[in-house]
Design a protein around this nucleic acid. Structure first.
Length: 260
DNA sequence: ATGGTCGTTTGACGA
């Protein structure tokens, strides 16, 4: 099974790229974040024409997540599946595809360490862990993926010194990644690549992409069974390139492939 | 040179 995650920063602006990318990489499942669409505007027919079912959770303008699958979509859930109060934003969608329980996540940015949004981010990650525990056991085939807005380690940031006392690298955020790992999930990309400077996001400003100033914040957190059957993990950094009339997202797709 | 760029939108705001 081949599964990918991609924060597209507006699916409307990126639909042509997403179509071409699906045809080139032929993933079985593609998880999207920041579609910035309401459910009514989600282009399900476009994906259907390419052989994919889809499930979208969005309210328009900001946020919005989707799961696109050619292995079917079972037991979809829009938002957290814990039966609690609906999240204020559309940031997570669940579905089972080809026997794998999958979550497409757009973790809150946090904005600044002293901002209310940072507390929302930490609480959101705690709720994600509880939701996972409510739906799955660690021996299941699981992929919790998406834009985590967290660089798990210093080697995931172009200059750790520039990010002290900032979101994305703070200890409480990294502790939430560690909690998922203690539960049984694996940052599978890191089992295949130990190098620094392998990023998934580059700020649009300042020519950061060309200066190799990025962060690895788009993660596939998989159960051990999925990680152990993963043969390939990659970032398609070519997708971060492009002309002004067909601009890229500020995130590149991350993909795993294996016998799961 | 105290900004830089996108995408939502037509005025800022979020990332």
């Amino acid at each position: 099974m081949r599964i990918a995650t991609w924060n597209v920063n507006s699916l409307k602006a990126r639909l042509g790229r997403v179509e071409r990318w699906l045809e080139m990489f032929e993933p079985d499942v593609l998880c999207l974040q920041e579609t910035k669409l309401a459910d009514e505007a989600f282009p399900a027919m476009t994906f259907e024409a390419l052989g994919y079912d889809s499930f979208h959770h969005g309210e328009g303008r900001w946020n919005g997540v989707a799961i696109v699958s050619r292995l079917g979509i079972e037991d979809p859930i829009a938002g957290f599946g814990d039966g609690g109060r609906p999240d204020v934003d559309a940031r997570i969608a669940w579905a089972t595809c080809g026997g794998v329980r999958i979550a497409s996540c757009y973790v809150p940015n946090g904005r600044a360490l002293n901002h209310d949004h940072y507390q929302y981010k930490l609480a959101w990650l705690d709720r994600l862990a509880a939701d996972l525990d409510g739906q799955c056991v660690p021996s299941d085939d699981i992929v919790v993926c998406g834009d985590f807005n967290i660089a798990p380690e210093d080697r995931d940031v172009y200059d750790p010194a520039e990010f002290t006392m900032q979101t994305h690298t703070s200890e409480p955020e990294r502790a939430r990644i560690a909690a998922l790992q203690e539960w049984g999930l694996v940052d599978v990309f890191r089992e295949h690549h130990s190098d620094a400077r392998l990023y998934s996001w580059w700020d649009y400003r300042g020519g950061n992409f060309h200066k190799k100033k990025g962060m690895r914040i788009d993660l596939l957190m998989t159960s051990r069974s999925v990680a152990d059957t993963t043969d390939v993990a990659l970032v398609d950094r070519n997708e971060r390139k492009g002309p002004k009339d067909d601009p890229p997202s500020d995130h590149a797709p991350v993909l795993i492939d294996g016998n799961h």
